[in-house]
């Protein structure tokens, strides 16, 4: 049975290592924070200018000066530090953040990522995504294997404008876990009861190994 969103997030949480500084994208990646192992020391970075992001506030704790990169109200922790936008992206671009987990519209077999615009549709902008994929040590994409029309989102070549070139290390979809390797995409793990045949049928990218 393919993974649902929660199971995808739970699987993505296995990418975390004790002591990591992590940036989570908007959408399913945000759910990953619910599955951090209790004995792990993980610090979440929010690119609008905070390290050590806490959970959503209670009604009494709401502070308009305290939001995350999705503009949602959040809370601080004892470890929290605040900084300006250039400082925030210095730690991103400078490779000081260990892992970023983010969503995608398309990923290519060479690790290209497209997640910021669809030509002909309203373009809202890339926000910090281009900086994150270019600078963070390891990029894990969390996305459905196919789009709503049933077409593979794991492609030989992206059709949409890129967010980054050769930036993705690993892709976690509802069907399994895949790595970008020399020559194509390697199947690392399949979701329970998902057969290799189904993956082959639903993947346009070259599968290797």
């Amino acid at each position: 049975m393919p993974w649902d969103r929660s199971k995808m997030a739970a699987r993505a949480a296995l990418e975390l290592e004790d002591g990591f500084y992590v940036n989570l994208g908007i959408g399913i990646p945000t759910l990953v924070s619910n599955y951090v192992p209790a004995d792990y020391d993980i610090t979440l970075q929010s690119e609008n200018g905070m390290l050590g992001m806490g959970p959503f506030p209670t009604e009494d704790e709401i502070d308009p000066d305290l939001i995350n990169a999705g503009k949602q109200t959040v809370t601080e922790l004892d470890r929290t530090s605040y900084f300006s936008s250039s400082q925030s992206f210095a730690m991103v671009r400078g490779g000081h953040i260990n892992l970023s987990i983010l969503g995608a519209m398309e990923v290519s077999e060479t690790g290209d990522l497209a997640n910021w615009m669809i030509p002909g549709r309203l373009v809202k902008g890339m926000g910090g995504a281009m900086d994150l994929v270019a600078g963070v040590q390891r990029i894990v994409v969390l996305m459905d294997h196919a789009n709503k029309a049933g077409e593979s989102k794991l492609l030989k070549k992206c059709t949409l404008p890129l967010t980054g070139q050769a930036v993705v290390d690993r892709i976690i979809t509802n069907l399994g876990v895949f790595d970008v390797v020399e020559g194509g995409i390697k199947v690392v793990e399949l979701a329970p009861e998902v057969a290799m045949d189904e993956v082959r049928q639903k993947t346009e990218a070259t599968l290797v190994g």
Binding site: S85, F89, V92, R93, M126, G127, A129, M130, G135
Partner: peptide, 22 residues
């Protein structure tokens, strides 16, 4: 890109006319 915008403003304010980024 958000980080590029931040750095463009930082650089402009610091007397740096341009910078290279990945």
């Amino acid at each position: 890109p958000q980080g590029t915008l931040a750095e463009r403003l930082r650089a402009g304010g610091a007397g740096i006319p341009g910078f290279y980024t990945a």
